[in-house]
Lab assay of single mutants.
Amino acid sequence: NLYFQGLKYMVPGARVTRGLDWKWRDQDGSPQGEGTVTGELHNGWIDVTWDAGGSNSYRMGAEGKFDLKLAP
């Protein structure tokens, strides 16, 4: 699974964008943008601060869902 392989790169400072299971509307800005991981992966959740200004926790394994992917 590509998403599980990418988890080791989901570290503080990593750049991310919305992924396969995104369901959080425009939390990442409008139009959709990139963000920066600000915390360690914990119980399948990870913290992100978006360039647009907001921050929140997103699923990276929790509930079998992956809200994020590494930015290109």
Rank of each mutant, 00 (worst) to 15 (best):
S55Y: 11
T38W: 05
S30Q: 13
T36C: 10
P31T: 08
S55F: 12
R18W: 06
V37K: 00
G39R: 10
Q27H: 06
D67C: 03
P12M: 13
W22G: 03
E63C: 15
K8A: 12
D28K: 04
G61I: 02
L2Y: 12
P31V: 08
W45F: 05
K23S: 10
A14D: 07
A71R: 08
G64E: 06
V16R: 00
K69R: 12
G54H: 11
Q5T: 12
K23T: 09
A14N: 05
I46F: 01
L2P: 15
L20E: 11
K23L: 07
H42A: 10
D51A: 04
R59S: 03
D21C: 07
W24M: 05
G53H: 03
Q32V: 08
D67T: 03
N43T: 06
D47A: 14
G19V: 07
G6I: 15
G13I: 03
Y58I: 02
R18D: 00
M60N: 03
S57W: 10
N43W: 09
D67G: 01
Q27G: 07
A62F: 14
W24E: 06
K23I: 14
H42C: 15
L2I: 15
W45K: 02
V48E: 00
N1R: 08
L41G: 05
H42F: 11
L2N: 15
Y3L: 14
V16D: 01
I46C: 05
Y58D: 00
T17R: 13
F66G: 01
Y9W: 12
W50A: 00
G54D: 08
N1D: 14
W24T: 05
N56M: 07
G61Y: 03
L7E: 08
R25L: 14
G13W: 05
Y58C: 05
V37G: 00
V48P: 00
P72K: 13
G33R: 08
S55V: 11
V11C: 15
Q5K: 14
V37W: 01
G35S: 02
W22T: 03
N56K: 07
G6N: 13
P12K: 13
A14F: 04
Q32W: 11
Y9C: 15
T17N: 07
N56R: 08
G35K: 00
A52R: 10
G29C: 07
Q32G: 14
G19F: 06
V11T: 11
E34S: 13
S55Q: 12
G13A: 03
D47E: 15
W22P: 03
K8E: 15
G13E: 03
Q27N: 06
D67Q: 03
H42N: 12
D47L: 14
G61T: 02
G54F: 10
L2M: 14
T49N: 09
V37A: 03
R59E: 01
D26S: 09
S30L: 13
E40P: 13
A14K: 06
F4V: 11
D67H: 02
D51M: 03
W24F: 06
M60H: 05
I46A: 03
Q5Y: 12
W24H: 06
A71H: 07
P12S: 09
I46L: 11
G19K: 06
G19P: 03
D26W: 06
T49W: 07
N56Y: 15
T38C: 13
P31I: 08
T36F: 05
F4E: 15
M60W: 08
Q5C: 15
M60F: 09
G54N: 10
E63H: 11
L2W: 10
D67M: 03
V16T: 00
W50Y: 01
W24V: 05
F4A: 13
H42W: 10
L70C: 13
R18I: 07
G64W: 08
L70F: 15
L68M: 00
H42Q: 11
P72W: 13
W22V: 04
D28Y: 04
G54L: 10
R25V: 11
G61L: 02
G44L: 03
G61E: 01
S55E: 09
T17Q: 12
S30H: 12
G35V: 02
N43F: 10
G6R: 10
L2H: 15
Y58S: 01
F4R: 10
G64L: 07
D51E: 05
K69T: 11
D21N: 09
T17P: 02
N43A: 10
A71S: 12
D47W: 14
R15P: 01
G64M: 09
L70M: 10
F4N: 12
Y58F: 03
D51S: 03
G64A: 07
P72F: 13
G29R: 04
I46T: 02
G44T: 00
G39W: 04
D47N: 13
G64V: 04
Y3W: 14
M60D: 00
Y9S: 09
Q5D: 15
Y58P: 00
L70D: 03
V48A: 01
W45G: 00
E40D: 10
I46Q: 01
G64C: 15
A14Y: 04
W50G: 00
D67F: 04
D21V: 05
W24I: 04
L41C: 10
L2K: 14
P12N: 09
V48K: 00
S57I: 10
T17V: 15
A62S: 08
W50P: 00
